[in-house]
Structure formats: C-alpha cells, structure tokens
C-alpha cells in the first residue's frame, strides 16, 4: 500500500478568522509539496490540519500511511541525552533500530550523549528532523524545517527529503526559506485573497 495525502476543498479557520478556503491538492508516493506564504497566513495551520491535530472547517483530508510531524517544538525531553530522547520515540514507533542512521543523516552522531537542553537551536532542529527520519513514517509533515539550520545542515535536510521521496515517501514542507526540492508542488497561501 503506497502512501498518499490529499486535501479536498479544505478550509481552515482559527479563532473565527478564515485562514484559507477551498484548498485542494493530492500527493502520491514520491511527491513533495512546498507551502509558502506570508507570516500568519496559515502555513503551520495547514501542516496541523494534515497532521490531524486541527479539524478542517470544511472539506476532507484523506491520508494513507503513517505521519511524522516536525513543528517548532521538537518534543525531546531536555534532560535526556539526545540518543535516549530519540530512543523514546523510536520505542513508541516500535522501531528501536534506525536511530543511529537518523543521527548520522543529520550529522548528530557525535552529539548522541549530549543532553538535549545543551543543544543549540540548529542542533535541536536537526534532532527533531532525526526523530522524523527515525519514525519510518512515509508521510513527513515539516513545519519550517530549515529554521535555524546552517548551509551544511540545509543541504543535509534537502538530501534527506530527496532520499525519503526516492524510497516512496511524501513530504509536505511549510517554509519561508528557499529549499531545493526538485519537482515539488508549490502551494501558495494567500495568493487568491
């Protein structure tokens, strides 16, 4: 069963304000979409709708496959060494093995014994990305994954997304920073309004 993510005429309202309306797109295995738009236009809300955390005001979201979510909060226990903090989520996902590979993919191997609270902003973001990569979920929902990343880490992120897509994965990326995602759909929020 290959992964799929489809929005059908989805509208999203927060606090009585309509953020976007009648948004439709479909992503099949190997596809990616970049959500762009001004601050506060609803990029993060779109990701949360795709993650199932926010019910859409109208329309339907069809999902096939597990999802992995990256938000501003990396959900790693600050007092634990990085490897153990990631290990908690790997255990929840029932995949205790691929942490080492995920750490290596984001150049974090040397930081594995360091407590999460001592990591820098960029390192924390990479740790969150490693959590997404280790989850093994085919659908990646990334909210501003490039925030705080340096040039090298951004390249690692682009490579990880490319590899994920080559393996039949889907990536939905909300970002205001330029990311090289070849052949990605562009979802421009606020363009119609």
């Amino acid at each position: 069963m290959s992964a799929a993510l489809a929005f059908d005429a989805v509208s999203c309202a927060r606090g009585g304000r309509m953020l976007f309306a009648d948004l439709s797109f479909a992503l099949r295995a190997g596809a990616a979409a970049v959500v762009v738009g001004a601050n506060g236009i609803g990029k993060s809300s779109l990701v949360r709708v795709a993650a199932g955390l926010l019910p859409p005001a109208a329309g339907t979201v069809a999902i096939t496959g597990n999802r992995a979510l990256l938000t501003e909060d990396n959900a790693l226990d600050p007092e634990l060494p990085l490897a153990r903090a990631l290990g908690f989520w790997a255990a929840i996902d029932g995949r205790p093995l691929p942490i080492a590979a995920a750490l290596a993919a984001f150049d974090l191997t040397a930081l594995a014994p360091v407590p999460v609270r001592l990591l820098s902003t960029g390192q924390r973001k990479r740790a969150g990305l490693a959590r997404v990569a280790a989850s093994g979920a085919p659908i990646w929902l990334l909210d501003e994954p490039a925030n705080g990343l340096d040039q090298r880490a951004t390249t690692l992120l682009e490579a990880a997304i490319a590899q994920h897509r080559a393996a039949g994965g889907i990536a939905l990326v909300a970002t205001h920073l330029p990311l090289a995602l070849p052949g990605a759909h562009r979802i421009v929020l606020g363009a119609a309004a």
Binding site: R67, A68, L69, A75, P78
Partner: peptide, 13 residues
C-alpha cells in the same frame, strides 16, 4: 503540551 509531546502522540494515533 508545551514541548509538543502531546502533538506527537496524537499524530501517532
């Protein structure tokens, strides 16, 4: 809730 742990658990169903 603040650290996003509940979000992550909810996404995992």
């Amino acid at each position: 809730g603040d650290a996003g742990v509940l979000d992550q658990l909810a996404v995992r169903g």
